[in-house]
């Protein structure tokens, strides 16, 4: 277990170094004249990767928060969609405000609605003991239905978050463009990875949360209120998924479309599994998935038509299947996942 983890981290580090080196070579030397190398390593490909990864990172963090406390969440997709729609409604109804407050209001509402979706999932699966996978399915259908029912197809959101260049760091060639010239929610997602990692493994909250997901009875017998932690973390997780939806509307696309999450919630779930329920692992997996989407985009831009675009679009989904097939058994989900925890009257 430990060794697999170490080998994976070394591999990840090696991969990162490889990409940095190639990015420098392709973007600063004549190597960049090669179409294929440009497809794989150009600044635009790397930028696209990051942009495509942000919702996946946030979604995977949502999954980690829920599952580390023992609540399975396949409803990330629905939470994201609800967040996106909420952000859109908030943004369009405050179009007359100055841009920044209006966008921030959109973020706040996305967080709120995402949190409410999390609360609903928690109530269904804890209070009403609904099977957690079915509860997630309910959220997905519900979010799809409500957003379509209430969607005003004539509304237009005006403006979206722009890039903020971090002084100094953004001047670094290539890296500055890719990492330090991004819109605010992108930075937020990256910071959240660090924050949640520290939270989970170095704080009281994290220790207790993980205990609830691994052995709820043990947590209960030392006075940890298991279901309170599960409620709390599912709501927090829902907020992160809501933020992912907010990102799509307020930072990436600028508008809402029905079903615009397009499976990102599910891919987040795969990123979480692939990343062994670790924030950095999940981020790595999300970047990988994001990269496959970037490739698809770059291939289109480069006019490569030898492969039909539908097959290129399949890549992230196929990679997900390969990932969950190849890695289950080598990763280890929280032991008490998906099981209802009851104190009274339980005999063991």
């Amino acid at each position: 277990m430990q060794r697999t983890l170490r080998v994976t981290s070394y591999l990840a580090i090696a991969l990162v170094i490889f990409f940095v080196v190639m990015a420098f070579l392709v973007n600063l030397t004549p190597l960049g004249e090669n179409t294929w190398l440009r497809v794989f390593f150009s600044v635009s490909a790397l930028n696209f990767t990051l942009r495509a990864s942000v919702p996946l990172i946030l979604g995977a963090l949502c999954g980690i928060l829920c599952e580390r406390t023992g609540i399975i969440n396949i409803g990330i997709e629905g939470m994201m969609l609800a967040g996106a729609f909420a952000a859109f409604v908030a943004k369009t109804s405050t179009n007359h405000w100055p841009l920044m407050p209006s966008l921030l209001f959109g973020v706040a509402i996305a967080l709120l609605v995402g949190g409410l979706m999390g609360l609903l999932h928690a109530i269904f699966s804890i209070r009403y003991r609904m099977d957690q996978i079915i509860s997630g399915t309910v959220l997905i259908i519900l979010a799809g239905g409500v957003s379509a029912y209430l969607f005003d197809r004539n509304a237009v959101a005006q403006g979206k978050f722009g890039a903020i260049a971090i002084p100094g760091l953004s001047q670094i060639p290539v890296l500055g463009e890719v990492l330090f010239t991004n819109p605010p929610l992108t930075y937020t997602a990256l910071i959240l990875v660090v924050v949640i990692h520290i939270g989970l493994f170095y704080t009281r909250w994290g220790l207790r949360s993980r205990a609830c997901g691994e052995h709820p009875r043990a947590a209960d017998t030392v006075g940890v209120n298991v279901n309170r932690f599960r409620y709390m973390n599912t709501v927090l997780g829902g907020m992160l998924a809501g933020l992912a939806g907010g990102f799509l509307v307020l930072e990436a696309v600028g508008q809402f479309q029905e079903g615009m999450t397009a499976g990102r919630g599910f891919i987040s779930l795969a990123a979480m599994i692939f990343g062994n329920w670790m924030p950095f692992g999940a981020m790595g997996a999300a970047l990988l998935f994001g990269y496959t989407q970037a490739l698809q985009n770059e291939l289109l831009l480069a006019g490569v038509t030898t492969v039909p675009r539908q097959f290129v679009s399949m890549i992230p989904y196929v990679v997900t299947i390969v990932a969950v097939s190849g890695f289950v058994g080598r990763v280890r989900p929280p032991a008490a996942e998906g099981k209802v925890y009851e104190t009274e009257g339980e005999s063991e």
Binding site: Y128, M130, L142, G145
Partner: peptide, 19 residues
Amino acid sequence: DIIQVIQALVLAFVAAPLI
């Protein structure tokens, strides 16, 4: 689209008979 909402509610109620 309200039909989809109703369907989600039906699903929720049958999946959680406790409600």
